[in-house]
Structures are given as C-alpha cells and as structure tokens.
C-alpha cells in the first residue's frame, strides 16, 4: 500500500524507486529514510502542457519525492481523503485539491467552458473556473477538503444533487449540470440560500465535503 491514512488530516506515503510521489509544494510534514525532494511544475507534458496549465490557472507548484522511505503529507490542517483509482475512469477535481498522488498517474487540464454558458457558470459556482484537472491511471490520490469528504454513489436510477460549493470531485461516467432555481424570494433576499444545485447523473461516485467553505 503506497498511501496509508495516519489520521483524518495526515497521510503517510511509502516511497520506493518504482513509485515516486508527486505532492503539493509545502505539504511535506516530515520524512524518514533516504528521500530526496525536487521541485517540479504542475501539469502537462512538454511546452504545450506547461503553457496550457499556466493559462488555465490549473497549475500548482508541485514537488517530487523520490528514493526509499516514508513521507508524511498534510496541508494547513485540511482533511485528507485517499482515493484508489482503478484505471477505468479518471478522477476530476481542482488542481489545488490535489495533496499528493502516485507519480505514475498522469494529470491533464480540461476546458469545461466548451459546454457553453451553462458549463461556464457551473465552473464559476463550483470554484473551478473554466478549467478542471483530470487524473488518469491506476494508483492512489490524496485529496484535500474542508471538513471531511464522503463518497456518494450515483446510478442511473439515483442521480444526486450537490451543493456546488460542497463539491470536491468525481470519478466515473458522470455528467454535471448546474440547475438554477431562482425565484422571487431569492431576489428579495429571503431565499433558502440553495438556489443552485449541481445535478450529477450517470454511473460513478461523487465526493462531497461537509462544508461550503473552500479552504
């Protein structure tokens, strides 16, 4: 097991020569063994990937942990959720929610604005902007959330509505659609405060945090 959850805010990664780990810079709490750290750029391969990542804002300063040892990761006291990707579907999340992942996983940036105004509005509401990050491959990912994140299964029979601000990420064959229900009460400031919901349909798992605060 590469990632071991120490408690709800800290994860221990067992780094070996075959499986180095990529982590958010500033997230290393401590380590034992012969581990070397190296700053790397966030996303993408080659010049195009780098420019794309820089343009989209989906680029976080990352670092590679290589060698042989155990490294503790945590970030600003945020909750950590470890997700094991089986390779069938990528994980979609924001780049700044990525605490650490197996370096053999690939990350890429996806433009969500291509779905027109609706998708752009959805991006703005979930705090994702026009871009989001995809994590492909087989291996563990540690995600950050404010308040613990919990998985909700989505099936064709049971779609899920999620508060856009509580959305953390998702895996599987899902489509996300922002539903607005703005009525007279909302305009006069007497609404429920839940005028927008993210409708998640398809087959997969959506991760939701127990807070509407980002970080």
């Amino acid at each position: 097991m590469l990632f071991e959850q120490v408690n709800n805010k800290v994860v221990r990664a067992h780094v070996t020569a075959q499986s180095p780990v990529l982590a958010r810079r500033g997230a290393m709490l401590g380590y034992s063994g012969a581990v070397a750290f190296r700053p790397v750029r966030g996303q993408g391969g080659g010049v195009g990937g780098f420019v794309g990542a820089a343009m989209s804002g989906e680029s976080n300063p990352m670092m590679a942990s290589e060698g042989d040892g155990a490294v503790l990761y945590g970030y600003k006291g945020l909750y950590v959720t470890v997700i094991d990707l089986d390779g069938s579907y990528p994980l979609t999340c924001e780049a700044d929610r990525l605490l650490a992942h197996d370096a053999n996983l690939q990350t890429s940036v996806q433009f969500v604005g291509s779905g027109g105004v609706r998708a752009a509005v959805r991006g703005a509401m979930t705090g994702q902007g026009l871009f989001t990050t995809l994590v492909h491959g087989r291996g563990p990912v540690a995600l950050l959330s404010h308040g613990g994140a919990f998985p909700l299964q989505v099936t064709g029979q049971w779609p899920v509505g999620v508060d856009p601000q509580a959305y953390v990420g998702h895996t599987g064959n899902l489509s996300l659609d922002l539903k607005a229900k703005v009525g007279f009460r909302d305009l006069t400031g007497r609404g429920s405060g839940e005028a927008f919901t993210l409708q998640v349909t398809g087959q997969g798992t959506v991760y939701v945090q127990a807070s509407e605060q980002k970080f």
Binding site: G26, L29, G30, P39, M63, L72, Y75, K76, G77
Partner: peptide
Amino acid sequence: RTSGEEKQYDFTGTGTVLMQSSE
C-alpha cells in the same frame, strides 16, 4: 520558489518526535 521546503529539523538519537498536520 521559496516554499521553505528545503529547511527541515533533523532528529537523531533515541526518543520520540511529535507531529501534527501543518497549520
């Protein structure tokens, strides 16, 4: 690029080190 990541406290010998999530 100054994350402070390059500076660490190095413990040797016997004893116990207490850690928490960064805050």
